[in-house]
Design a binder for these strands. Sequence first.
RNA 1: GCCGAUGUAACUCAGUUGGUAGAGUAGCUGAUUCGUAAUCAGCAAGUCAGCGGUUCGACUCCGCUCAUCGGCUCCA
Length: 638
Amino acid sequence: MINITLPDNSKKQFETAPTGFDVATSISEGFARTCVAMEIDGNLTDLSESIEKDARVRFITTKDKEAVDILRHSSAHVMAQAISHLYPGIKLAIGPVVEDGFYYDIDMSPVSEDDFEKIETEIKQIIQEKHPFIRQKISKKDALDRFRDDPYKTELISELDDDTISIYTQGDFTDLCRGPHLPDTGMIKAIKLMKVSGAYWRADQAKAQLQRVYGTAFFDKKELKQYLYVLEEAQKRDHRKLGAQFDLFSFHDEAPGMPFFHPKGMNLWNALLEYWREEHKKAGYVETKTPVMLHRSLWERSGHWENYRENMYTSSIDDFDYAIKPMNCPGGMLLFGTKQHSYRDLPIRAGEVGLVHRHELSGALSGLFRVRAFHQDDAHIFMRPDQIEAEIIGVLQLVERIYSTFGLGFHLELSTRPEKSIGTDEQWEMATSGLEAALNAYGKDYKINTGDGAFYGPKIDIHIKDALGRTWQCGTIQLDMSLPERFDLAYIGKDNTKKRPIMIHRVVYGSVERFMGILIEHFAGKFPLWLAPVQAIILPINDDLLPYAKTVQSDLESNGLRMDIDARTESLKKKIREAQINQIPLILTIGEKEKETKTLSVRSLDGKVTMGVDQALFLENIRAHIRQKRSDSNFFNA
RNA sequence: GCCGAUGUAACUCAGUUGGUAGAGUAGCUGAUUCGUAAUCAGCAAGUCAGCGGUUCGACUCCGCUCAUCGGCUCCA
């Protein structure tokens, strides 16, 4: 007699060992059809597995988040099967699930996206045939024998500790795999090949170059459609495209990876930093600035010369080596050391929007997202051990306030001690528990990434979620147990002895450049009024009104609005069209009527026109809207 | 840095088997002076990414370099 306990603690009894499918069917056939796998006492396995002894069983249905990974893993097998039908003699390497889908690395002659159609046709054929995924356990020796023609598989097999190896077969195709898999290929309702690229076996350039074919799969065609929509939308919003279109920034061959900001881009930049300064001041930060280029001895002391040299721009001047800073921290250490500090002075929150340079690999550069020169909105907080929790909470609150102003949600991840690290167990324990205590007190759920911390201390990473649901790591709070030591930082304690301060590095935007890129895509270039590079444009109806229009422009400008005027002799329709395309939040047309009555005709981007708006009232409303950093476009009512 | 693709006017792109380049948009000039998403006409504009090679002749073929894009990698 086998007793099965389900998650709601209800029980089912079976005379003989049932398979997962039997148990699911006993609940209902409809339910069984939505099951893709099951968890027996916490271990994920196939539905076809029989349950030999009493156990707690949880079914994974197409609604569960584990399910989509299983689907994609099975999809990778089906893709490999299809490709092996079409290209006999290929050798399969490895085919894992990745964030948005799956890929398979295959040793074969190069394929291109033009080949996708026929591969997809073959895949659909296999799906239609509804081949069950059949699991088999074989010995390592048998596995090596079975895959003897495939050097990649044999390499993988020989590295496995377990002597029992599982393989999966669907139709005429068998692959090495831990599983679990879908019951059959027919459950793959929506699958699409996405792209192909080269990849090395084991990411080692010395090893064979493989074809990496990417795909994605969903249980529902609608979900695939939605995914493709997001991709398409992301392409439309691409900040590189919009940055050129809106005249915000550019890149030049003379300085690859180093953006040039145009006047309109600077407007956006300044709005971002003005807001940053406002919030930081309120949160008790002071602002500092350290040099861009510093002597080698500093980098030796900080450890960068040894550990980060290959990413640093260096130069020799007057027979001395200098390096352009890749990080702001060492300069910040010198600043702290310029005077004695009492325990009463702590915490010191020293901000620095510092320009840093990192020599990123040429192939890694990408618009504002990956650059070689950027500004970190850094701050170093020096504090006593008893202040850790409150300070971290303070940073989290600051981060939350700032992100929410942009309409960005976020989640937190705590990274703990990595294998290679400096510092004592006690130090790590104190630092990690300090971060944990702060996270718990802050009260928002967080994910733990064991072993993902920096070698000098644990950290909290803050990941934002944009309007398309994409996540980006922006903020980070890193506890540093190395630099205060290396720079021998000290404050005088209550007992009149020297104590080592605790230091954290933290950023909110991360890289101002990258954050700007993220915002461009988040808003699709349609910035809220307070951020808009050009807040309002004046369109005189005819040339005779130009002088008056200019006085209105300068009046509004002197009241702090970022203005533009379209003085061309073009039709009003054309000027409106262009202003709309350029996403200018306020389009002000000026005709005879407006001139006579000192009013404005205001058009917002949604096409709504409000005529006869009194200029003083306009200014008052707009300034309030900007001050409150509102994201709506109801300019004349709250 | 590695693999693959791309590079033609300010922008988006076309250019047939090698015979020195075209379109739309933008710009300029002129006419139009216009009430909420494109007025009309004309003009000008390119060392075809750069360098080298093959050829009587190269945007076109070959090599190298640079940049960009998609991946990989990296992100003490």
